[in-house]
Design a protein around this nucleic acid. Structure first.
Lengths: 228, 228
DNA sequence: GACCAAATTAACCATCTCGTACAATTTGAT
DNA sequence: ATCAAATTGTACGAGATGGTTAATTTGGTC
């Protein structure tokens, strides 16, 4: 009966509306993510967000206080969704080598398929992490990502397939760097060097390269996949 | 006699000033770079830029037309300076292995020491490369970077120390990814995972890691430095 | 069905910000 | 002497923009 999905809260008729606070907030956040991701914090216009919503500008301020409050909540939601997917990966039952490769491929593809999330993180970095600093929940969520990787590396060390001195944080940094840069700098990179690496085959090639460059220094036997 | 450097164009005395269009423009551009890098294109205020200048707002519009024109010129200047330093590196006389390592270390350190440049590129990517697309000179300058790398790789192949299938554009992409991400995501990364990798030793460690992860897949004999 | 807090609507305001107009003076080259 | 280019200084207007005031509707409760 009730809209269990995320469908439109109201049929946009002016009079005769139903109360649905949750759906209204979700609607606003969805639009806000899109607009903030496209234009940045200062570039985004509250009026534009409101106009794209099924509700009114007043509601935006009613639920989120001000523009920065809306931005903060948008950022939180974006991180929450990403982290959820990472947890669902369930890598602990795979053998370490396969688990690591799968984590890399997942991260690379996930970032590639969610440019809006990447852009929000870029924007947040432009603002020196001011708003992430205000959200303890985001920080706590993300630390789990390195814990997950650390477990994989430890299992690998114990089985003798990974090097002893492989640092989880550094590996995570490297995976993030390539996966993130691949999306964040697409515009300038493509403009300068052409979009060969941005094509379907190019992206596959980069993903393989990411796997290889991460695994080679970590795996004891340097034979990541089908290299001769 | 004339100020051959980039010193202040006027002694800020109201009357009795010298004509020095070049110095005035340089002064404006220097301030603009600082403010745009700090606040982004939409976040930057023309009035603030003008106030920090040795000259007036009127002059900003006199020389650069409008805010976007100033931003475009700022971006051009930033790229120009970077590219100049890359050319000065003069890697063609080093043996391939050393040349590649030096290029990686230079890029990593240079980006690290010039966060404002990184931030301008981030901002430009937020704007989908709109302004870089308008500047053919920037594109031409930067393509040279891959040519330089390609020469190194070719020499390495010919000498039998590099693999045959090493792709210059992919290697450049990888070097850029780590060097860029290291600066661009400092704020969020440090907030979430602590600033261990951001310390002096952490940065040295990452630089070494960048060298290792790039060289290992490229060099035929997988022994990048002093690994046992 | 009266009542009230939460939800929602529509019009409104204060301010910021880009860019310009106006009015002049100074420089430097010919 | 002359004149265009360079520079100063101020004030201001139009429109964009973040945020608010005031009034209405809903839905649950007694």
């Amino acid at each position: 009966m009730a809209n269990s999905g995320g469908t439109k809260p109201k049929s946009s008729r002016k009079n005769s509306w139903k109360q649905n606070p949750q759906a209204v907030q979700e609607n606003i956040l969805r639009v806000a993510q899109e607009v903030f991701a496209k234009n940045g914090l200062s570039g985004a216009r509250v009026d534009e967000i409101a106009a794209m919503t099924e509700t009114s500008k007043r509601m935006v301020y009613y639920y989120f206080g001000d523009k920065e409050g809306l931005y903060r909540r948008t950022l939180e939601e974006a991180y929450r969704k990403v982290r959820q997917k990472e947890v669902d990966l369930d890598l602990d039952h795979l053998d370490p080598r396969a688990a690591l490769e799968r984590l890399i491929r997942f991260t690379f593809r996930h970032h590639s398929e969610n440019p809006d999330f990447i852009r929000l993180v870029m924007i947040e970095n432009i603002h020196h992490g001011t708003y992430l600093a205000q959200s303890a929940t985001i920080r706590d969520m993300n630390r789990g990502a390195v814990d997950q990787l650390e477990r994989i590396l430890k299992r690998g060390r114990d089985e003798g397939v990974f090097r002893q001195d492989a640092d989880p944080l550094t590996i995570h940094w490297q995976i993030s760097a390539m996966s993130f840069f691949n999306v964040s700098n697409r515009a300038t990179f493509s403009l300068i060097f052409g979009d060969r690496l941005n094509s379907a085959t190019g992206q596959r090639q980069l993903e393989d390269w990411a796997v290889e460059t991460v695994l080679r220094p970590v795996v004891v036997d340097p034979r990541p996949s089908d290299q001769g």
